[in-house]
Design a protein around this nucleic acid. Structure first.
Length: 567
RNA sequence: CGGGGCGUAGCGCAGCCUGGUAGCGCACCUGCCUUGGGCGCAGGGGGUCGGGCGUUCAAAUCGCCCCGCCCCGACCA
């Protein structure tokens, strides 16, 4: 195509609202424009790139035997009420009424619609398994859209849904998706990590997220460079570092001591001269309206996700100061487990086997020393702490790193969460009615593009891989007013097109610097410059990623590019 | 929803404190010039100063209310 005829509104300056690299570059390179918070228009270049990503996804999904559907984004409330999500989703679901006053919503995913189709049509085990997918726009009324295309309210997503007779079938479908996703991201040139993810409060036996390391991300992943273990911090387990001081030996009894004004772990550590690891941290939370005491080692942090799962209330909250006073007879800063009768006590596993530690005395300005779990009080052990960088890997003992990531895909064993309440039943070989088991598997198409840009850019612009760049090659006559350069550039352009190379000819009447800057900005992987060396029959072939430039005979340029593309 | 910031030409910003009727750079249009990294010269077009109400002889500027956008937090199948 000819640049002079295209709408590619590149910007010299960064719009003030863009903070992360991918957002800035998508705006500057003329890929996207914002309409409203979390709502973007995809202009010509973005659309080309997104179509290429979609096609890669489509090819790989088809290759695993999945069937593409196109489903309504506009949903009646009924199906969401049947699944229970009408109430669960809260304000995240876009809701409205139609002209007859019927409740409607814009679908944020399509479990309900897919299940509604399945229950109407699937009758027999002979029809299973099924893998159905769609690549469509979904809607979520995000409380805080941000970071360009990374967190938006309207977005393109590939979602697939599997229906199987049994767990083994689901496991196979899940595994297929896991492998297919790896191929998709490899083809998109996206460096990703598959991590174990928290499967959520509502069932779901297994879940993986596909993550891309980026400072623009919102998730944290614990990763072991030694054995490859990686998990979302919400779920990650580790072996904590050993306590900084050995516990006092012996069968000692708790002993109260005065700690005037010392409330925090750090203050008590400074006061006693003993490290934070010698203390038990007491946190009071309210789950399902009832108090629970959670104990952690002094230097550890509570994982709210883990705790939410264990207390069986993901919405649990810290106790209010008045509640604490009522239950403990003391204020936060002097709380402890000894003598506590009116609530369950949960202790993190890092406290297992410890002896004679320091804890609050449940009396303001007093602590206890020589407190031993199992002797001076009883507690249930659970994994409650959040992993921190530097912890030892639970599998191999290596040192864990914590990396900020963007989630680009999520695969999920749903179980019977939708098929059961929505009444999906088929007959098995024995003629008995059974409920199929489901999985769901999403990929954020826009996040792939953003993720690739986050990972592949320099000060001049995007560095896109050929597989998803809007064009594979740009042909730039340095001086378009020079007939020889212009004609040669056209010839190379035509030849490239003939070879099946996705080519853009920059035929604009601009100075070379402008054209080079724009080409760099929009991230086209290869550039052929027709310039002064044309007098010697040479043109220049430049690779965007490395900036390596070589001279080739003008008649060889198109084929040289084809070879670089590996075709 | 809590906290903070910002809304002045397509983009980036100044002007606001101390009220007197809007300016700079880039972009855009015309002409000349130039052609290997956002070139130069000359001329020109473009603004409900986010919106409403109020104070005032006079409001981009002061006050009140509202709206929008961004950031932090909360939230996030």
């Amino acid at each position: 195509m000819l640049w002079s005829k295209l709408f590619i509104p590149t910007l010299r300056e960064v719009p003030a609202e863009a903070e992360v690299a991918s957002h800035q570059l998508l705006l500057r390179a003329g890929y996207i424009r914002q309409l409203s918070a979390g709502i973007y228009s995809f202009l010509f270049l973005a659309q080309r790139s997104l179509l290429k990503i979609q096609n890669i996804v489509r090819q790989e999904m088809d290759a695993m035997g999945a069937q593409e559907f196109s489903l309504p984004a506009l949903n009646p409330a009924e199906v969401w009420q049947e699944s229970g999500r009408w109430d669960v989703m809260g304000d995240n679901l876009f809701r409205f009424k139609d002209r007859f006053g019927r409740d409607m919503c814009l679908a944020m995913t399509h479990e309900e619609v897919m299940t509604a189709i399945a229950r109407g049509e699937l009758r027999s085990y002979k029809q299973l398994p099924q893998i159905w997918y769609q690549i469509q726009t979904k809607f979520r009324d995000e409380p805080r859209p941000k970071s360009g295309l990374l967190r938006v309210r309207e977005f393109m997503m590939k979602d697939s849904y599997t229906f199987d007779m049994d767990q083994a079938g689901l496991d196979a479908a899940y595994d297929k998706h896991y492998k297919t996703y790896g191929r998709i991201f490899d083809r998109c040139g996206l460096a990703y990590t598959a991590v174990e993810a928290h499967s959520g409060a509502m069932g779901g036996s297994q879940s993986h997220e596909f993550m891309v390391a980026s400072e623009a991300g919102e998730d944290f992943v614990a990763r072991c460079p030694n054995c490859g273990y990686s998990a979302n911090l919400e779920k990650a387990a580790s072996v904590p570092a050993a306590p900084a001081a050995a516990d006092p030996a012996g069968d000692l009894s708790p002993e109260e001591f005065h700690t005037p004004g010392r409330k925090t772990i750090a203050e008590v550590a400074a006061f006693t001269g003993l490290p934070e690891t010698s203390q038990m941290k007491s946190l009071v939370v309210v789950a399902d309206g009832k108090p629970v005491l959670i104990l952690l080692r002094g230097d550890h942090q509570l994982s709210e996700t883990k705790a939410g799962a264990i207390v069986n209330d993901p919405e649990f909250r810290p106790a209010q100061p008045e509640e604490i006073r009522q239950w403990f007879g003391a204020d936060a800063g002097s709380l402890g487990p000894v003598g506590l009768r009116n609530m369950p006590i949960l202790a993190d596993r890092a406290l297992e086997g410890r002896r004679n530690m320091i804890a609050g005395a449940n009396k303001n300005d007093y602590h206890l020393r020589q407190v031993t779990l199992g002797e001076d009080f009883q507690a249930e052990f659970h994994d409650l702490r959040q992993v921190v960088a530097g912890d030892a890997c639970a599998r191999c003992g290596g040192t864990l790193a914590v990396v900020k990531c963007v989630e680009i895909a999520h695969i999920f064993k749903l179980g019977y969460k939708y098929s059961e309440p929505m009444g999906l039943r088929v007959l098995n070989a024995d003629g008995k009615e059974v409920t199929p088991i489901m999985g769901s598997y999403g990929i954020g198409i826009g996040r792939i593009l953003s993720g690739v840009i986050e990972l592949n850019h320099d000060k001049d612009g995007m560095v896109l891989p050929p597989s998803i760049a809007p064009f594979e090659l740009i042909v730039t006559p340095a001086n378009n007013a020079d007939p020889a350069q212009r004609e040669t550039a056209h010839a190379i352009y035509q030849e490239s097109l003939g070879l099946g190379i996705d080519t853009l000819l920059d035929d604009r009447d601009e100075r070379p610097g402008v054209k080079f800057k724009d080409a760099d900005l929009i991230g086209v992987p290869f550039r052929v410059v027709v310039g002064k060396k044309l007098a010697q029959g040479k043109v220049e072939l430049v690779e965007r990623s490395t900036r390596a430039a070589i001279d080739v005979a003008s008649g060889e340029a198109a084929r040289a590019v084809l070879k670089r593309l590996g075709r």
